[in-house]
Simulated scan of single mutants.
Amino acid sequence: MSSTPQRPARVKSEKTAVFRVLAFLLLPAMTLLSKYKLHDAHNVPARGAFVLSPNHYSNIDPIVIGVGMWKIGRMPRYMAKASLFTVPLLGWLLTKSGQVPVQRASRSREGGDPMKAVRQIANQGLAVVVYPEGSLTREPDMWPMRGKNGAVRTALEAGIPLIPAASWGAQEILPRYSKRISIFPRKTVHIRFGEPVDLSQFEGRHLDSRVLAEATEKLMTAITELLEELRGETAPKVRYNPADHGQSEVGRFEQR
């Protein structure tokens, strides 16, 4: 498996004091747990807004992707559980770094519309990370499952690049649904960044459910192909849909 040389950070201004504090708190531990191999980092825009859409198979994924983005020089904004914003210090850091609070249970008035906040961040020329699966994949072998349309809708409405990404190795640090981190031996996490998804065929069209579903499937195919390269395996031909297996996409679930 080849990897491209790491690209020097060219947008240093994004590494604000708050992000440097977060890096100070997280990077030493994450470096102890794993080394990171970035592949095709040149596909990540050096400046300007874009949506990054990775696969999701471990609760530590956002931190892993955050480490990768830090190394590239772009600071990510995520949608995070609203409850985290009430935690002393952590909530302050999340707010000051521009993360988006989301009420998971319902679209309460307090939570507002998270996608509206994401679009506002994109309009500011920043990087937004949107996991199209919405939750940890239910696919038994951790291949990407059915996607939701938030990522493609944001990219199309804002007119910005949609970058697919895939990571592999985070499950060795924190297995799916587990709360126990594996410290030794040190792991290796690979992150591959794809070329922007070509959404030109959808531009200017009414973004109804059919159009968004087609665009989302195109994104999920790109993510899956990147993951196939990292794993050296072939994904199932049929995209996994939890509804077909009587599974909820909310909460913990383990294949038995």
Rank of each mutant, 00 (worst) to 15 (best):
T31S: 15
A165G: 02
S34M: 12
E203K: 15
S248N: 12
Q255K: 14
R7V: 15
R7A: 14
L199A: 06
V130F: 01
A166C: 03
T86V: 07
V87H: 08
L26T: 13
K81C: 01
E139G: 02
R20N: 13
T4M: 13
R119G: 10
N149A: 15
Y57C: 12
V67A: 07
G73T: 02
L162D: 04
R239H: 03
E157F: 10
L93W: 03
R231H: 11
L207R: 10
M145W: 00
P5H: 13
V189Y: 01
L156S: 05
S58E: 00
F19H: 13
V64I: 12
A29F: 13
T4V: 11
A127H: 03
E254Q: 15
N43A: 06
G66L: 01
S135G: 03
H190M: 08
G91H: 01
P236A: 12
M1P: 10
D208Y: 05
L156H: 06
R119Q: 15
F202A: 01
Q255L: 12
L22T: 05
D40N: 13
A235E: 09
E133H: 07
V87E: 08
F85G: 06
F193D: 04
R180N: 07
V130D: 01
S106F: 08
Q99S: 03
S200A: 11
W168R: 09
M30W: 06
P62E: 00
N241P: 00
P54V: 01
G251A: 08
L25Q: 08
N59L: 12
V152F: 09
L230C: 05
F19S: 02
W143D: 03
T154L: 15
G134A: 08
V64Q: 00
M69E: 05
S178A: 12
F193V: 03
R176G: 02
T216G: 06
A170L: 06
T216V: 05
G232W: 01
A80V: 04
P236F: 10
L89D: 01
I63C: 07
N149K: 14
Q6W: 10
T154F: 10
L230D: 00
S209V: 14
S2P: 14
L27R: 13
S53G: 07
L226R: 07
I72A: 07
W92C: 12
G125W: 12
T31G: 11
D208M: 02
S167A: 11
E249M: 12
N123T: 08
E233Y: 10
P242I: 01
S200N: 08
S248M: 09
M1G: 13
A23R: 15
P8Y: 07
E233L: 14
E157A: 13
R176W: 00
M79Q: 08
G159V: 10
L89M: 13
K218G: 03
I191V: 12
V250P: 01
A117Y: 06
